[in-house]
Amino acid sequence: MTPTEVTDQAYANSAYIPGGHSYFARWADQAASFRSVHRHAELGVPYGDGARQSYDIFHPLGSAKGTVIFVHGGYWLAGGPRDFSHLAAGAETAGYACAMPSYTLAPEARIADITRDIAAAIGTIAWRTTGPIYLVGHSAGGHLVARMACVDMVADWSHRVARVMAISPISDLAPLMETSMNAMLGIDATEALTESPVHLTQQNMAVTAWVGGAERPAFLDQAQWLRTAWDCDLTIEADLHHFDVIEGLETPHSAMMRALLR
């Protein structure tokens, strides 16, 4: 194999997970079912003028204890919050609002632009809510929430962030420069430095990295790199892969939710 093919395989997930390609349709069905019975949701709330600059928010019964903000993955190229609405169940059941922002995808936006989208979304959500904020993201979303904990992203809402949880995060963009998807991502050496959390200084903000023990070695490495670079907890959840590792967000008393909301 060529070096690009080797790196593509290192960051491939579906091909190495039994029934991997079925997860996307399954998530979409679960998300639609969750939305169909939710009576306290606001969908498509704008935070900017772009077609994908909006968020969904699911409110609990009664006053919210705070707000969990979930940022989806998809290598900055695919997906959206409507694929993951059901992951709001754990936060909502625990008494928290759960907001899920969309963002402009590559190649229309560079990763630095997507970072700014997420910061803008959080700013709007923070303005509309009260109490602590918990940022959680998966895969590329794990990268994006980790970026919010970097000193160059300090904002007027930063002091409200009680914890950042980066699930299966991409903490160093440099390896992705060697993948075929970089034709659409356009990561160069400069962006790999300026947008990789491992090369940036952490705010005084609690951060937890979380990864499945059965994930591709590259994702275990990426989580460990963040742990090494930052003052950051790391949990390796045994036997879970890149897709089922996020299922803990559906249950208020899971180990993942207890760690996020502690």
Score class of each variant (00 low, 15 high):
residue 254 S to A: 12
residue 199 H to A: 15
residue 204 N to C: 02
residue 172 D to I: 01
residue 123 G to C: 02
residue 7 T to Q: 13
residue 207 V to S: 03
residue 44 G to C: 04
residue 186 G to E: 12
residue 115 T to Q: 13
residue 37 V to E: 13
residue 150 C to M: 15
residue 53 Q to A: 09
residue 34 F to Y: 15
residue 67 T to Q: 12
residue 207 V to M: 10
residue 167 I to H: 12
residue 261 L to K: 11
residue 236 I to G: 10
residue 49 D to W: 02
residue 64 A to I: 00
residue 104 T to M: 02
residue 27 W to I: 00
residue 17 I to Y: 09
residue 258 R to E: 09
residue 162 A to V: 01
residue 191 E to L: 12
residue 141 G to L: 12
residue 204 N to V: 01
residue 118 I to Q: 08
residue 206 A to Y: 05
residue 90 G to K: 08
residue 59 H to T: 00
residue 76 W to M: 02
residue 87 L to D: 08
residue 113 D to E: 14
residue 6 V to S: 11
residue 192 A to K: 11
residue 251 T to S: 13
residue 245 V to P: 05
residue 173 L to R: 14
residue 116 R to H: 10
residue 150 C to W: 04
residue 52 R to G: 03
residue 88 A to P: 03
residue 181 M to E: 11
residue 131 G to N: 11
residue 20 G to W: 11
residue 7 T to I: 11
residue 178 E to N: 15
residue 99 A to N: 07
residue 169 P to W: 07
residue 244 D to L: 09
residue 256 M to A: 15
residue 168 S to K: 10
residue 110 R to E: 10
residue 27 W to S: 07
residue 48 G to S: 05
residue 121 A to R: 06
residue 252 P to Q: 08
residue 34 F to W: 13
residue 229 A to T: 07
residue 14 S to D: 12
residue 203 Q to F: 04
residue 177 M to H: 09
residue 40 H to C: 00
residue 178 E to D: 14
residue 65 K to G: 01
residue 216 R to W: 00
residue 86 H to E: 02
residue 46 P to G: 02
residue 204 N to W: 03
residue 199 H to W: 10
residue 257 M to Q: 12
residue 159 H to Y: 09
residue 143 H to N: 14
residue 129 T to L: 05
residue 202 Q to Y: 07
residue 114 I to A: 03
residue 133 I to D: 03
residue 159 H to Q: 14
residue 84 F to L: 08
residue 92 E to Q: 13
residue 52 R to P: 02
residue 98 C to E: 03
residue 19 G to N: 14
residue 250 E to N: 07
residue 117 D to H: 13
residue 238 A to M: 06
residue 240 L to F: 10
residue 221 D to E: 14
residue 10 A to M: 12
residue 189 A to R: 15
residue 177 M to K: 14
residue 227 R to I: 00
residue 194 T to L: 12
residue 26 R to V: 00
residue 179 T to A: 03
residue 213 G to N: 06
residue 94 A to E: 03
residue 141 G to V: 06
residue 211 V to A: 11
residue 203 Q to T: 01
residue 188 D to W: 09
residue 165 M to D: 07
residue 122 I to E: 05
residue 159 H to E: 12
residue 51 A to G: 04
residue 99 A to G: 04
residue 251 T to W: 12
residue 163 R to T: 09
residue 233 D to E: 14
residue 142 G to E: 05
residue 228 T to N: 15
residue 17 I to D: 04
residue 176 L to G: 05
residue 117 D to V: 02
residue 126 A to F: 05
residue 48 G to N: 07
residue 72 H to D: 03
residue 126 A to R: 10
residue 44 G to H: 06
